[in-house]
Design a protein around this nucleic acid. Structure first.
Lengths: 254, 254
DNA sequence: AAATCTAGCTTTGTCGGACAAACCGATAAG
DNA sequence: CTTATCGGTTTGTCCGACAAAGCTAGATTT
């Protein structure tokens, strides 16, 4: 396109950013492995030749990005970014973008179905045992919406885990974090809601055990459709997630 | 469970974290709207009663989290977290977790199919025009793998946009960022690869225009299966994304 | 000798102050 | 009306300092 420029683009990134980038590079390309120490702030000061305040700003960037963390004794070490932490930030972004429950529901339907398909195909004995444990605990608290909602969320996490697909696990997490908290509202508001939920989980787990993909998908769809029907009794699918939560929080305080 | 404790859990979060949390709260619950200024560092120092270094560390956290940014004149303002930036972090996380292309492919198949279904249902005239523009440009560079790969990625972004589902847009982004760069490798390595890609896009767009969901899904699947076949000619689906990219980068340098 | 304690060194989190460069706004000059 | 200039702000960086918490190794006790 253009002629070769005479000068290279001048690098104007602030020093703290360069510090963060330099450490990030070492982690990304594997020269520092997760769990390995990064060194003390003093050492970084010496290596980069910048002030400790500057180093600390760079550290904050990486810490928030999930690439490094401080161990029990506050020493820096590289780490594998936790999906959960990243997902939390994504959920926050979704709220700020004022997405609606309709969007959330549609996407969750897609991802939970994919999740159960994967689980039916590839769940290990251990995965199945975990799901069974969750189901047993759910049956015990069927009358307690708060506890049941928590176990419901866990059931779906375990299902995604059973799919053995980490990309899918990650992709579903942000939506799930916004989606499943409503379970408590719904189970609490619909008689027999808790029983239907546990029933659906039971059929899903059974389908996974029998490697029956069709049944797994069917019951997952029913399970989510149940959620949807319950939701529409108490709120509109086309309102933003943010507003709905706000109102619910307000109502709960009364 | 336990008796009501006599003392409330004392807060030991470091000051910079509290600064970040305090500002985040104001943004999340809407008291500071996206685009509005946060104030200068000096003002934050005065308001929070902490040192400027501390304030700056808190700012770094929020900046990395995408909740605030500095405008042209480096003043702080709240902002809507950009999907893209967050997705980059997630992609990085996926690489560090050494996910395989099989996981990536499976999830992308799910999400792209959901994407085209949404697009068939809800694409606006404007969405269709954007897709058509992309298609026309693609046809022009059918012999240039690098440019074509870029336009392919854009086509799929536009398709997700046309689905009018922002949760879906967000959910597909991390996988897409890792998935589509390989298009260049594949199109370059398979004769007629470029032509098949443009052909698939043409059929997909046509299906969206005709609101023919079945055709849209069919051609999207074919399109991705094409990718998969091409990929398997040059690498294994079960190797980690990281290693495959490394080798490709190495080969390109020779 | 093994376990425990203690004193000193290290490291982190925070603070205060400082300064150059970039930026902003307003005024002066063409 | 545009351009140049100048002072006040603001950011990015640096220096030095200190309390609290953690770690280490030698001293003490059992």
């Amino acid at each position: 396109m253009a002629a070769t420029p005479l000068f290279r683009r001048i690098d104007v990134a602030p020093a703290y950013q360069k510090v963060a980038d330099a450490i990030e590079r070492e982690i990304i390309n594997g020269r520092i492995k997760p769990g390995e120490p990064i060194g003390t702030e003093q050492q970084l000061v010496a290596q980069f030749g910048v002030n400790r305040s500057t180093v600390r700003e760079g550290i904050r960037v990486l810490e928030e990005g999930g690439l490094i963390r401080r161990d029990s004794s506050r020493r820096l070490q590289a780490c594998l970014p936790r999906y959960n932490k990243l997902a939390t930030r994504l959920s926050r972004a979704l709220i700020l973008h004022e997405v609606t429950f309709r969007e959330l529901f549609e996407t969750s339907m897609t991802l939970e179905v994919a999740s159960v398909e994967g689980a039916v195909e590839r769940a290990t004995e251990e995965n199945i045992a975990e799901l069974a444990g969750n189901l047993a605990r759910s049956a015990d608290v069927v009358g307690n919406p708060a506890d049941l909602a928590e176990l419901d969320a866990e059931f779906h996490v375990l299902m995604a885990k059973a799919s053995q697909n980490r990309v899918l696990q990650l992709a579903r997490e942000p939506a799930a974090q916004l989606f499943f908290p409503t379970t408590e509202m719904i189970v609490g508001g619909v008689p027999e809601g808790g029983a239907r939920l546990v029933e659906a989980h039971r059929h899903i787990l059974d389908a996974i055990r029998r490697r029956d993909k069709e049944a797994g998908v069917l019951w997952t769809r029913r399970h989510l459709q149940d959620w949807r029907r319950g939701f529409e009794k108490i709120a509109s699918l086309d309102r933003s997630v943010e507003h709905t939560y706000m109102e619910h929080a307000y109502a709960a305080r009364q």
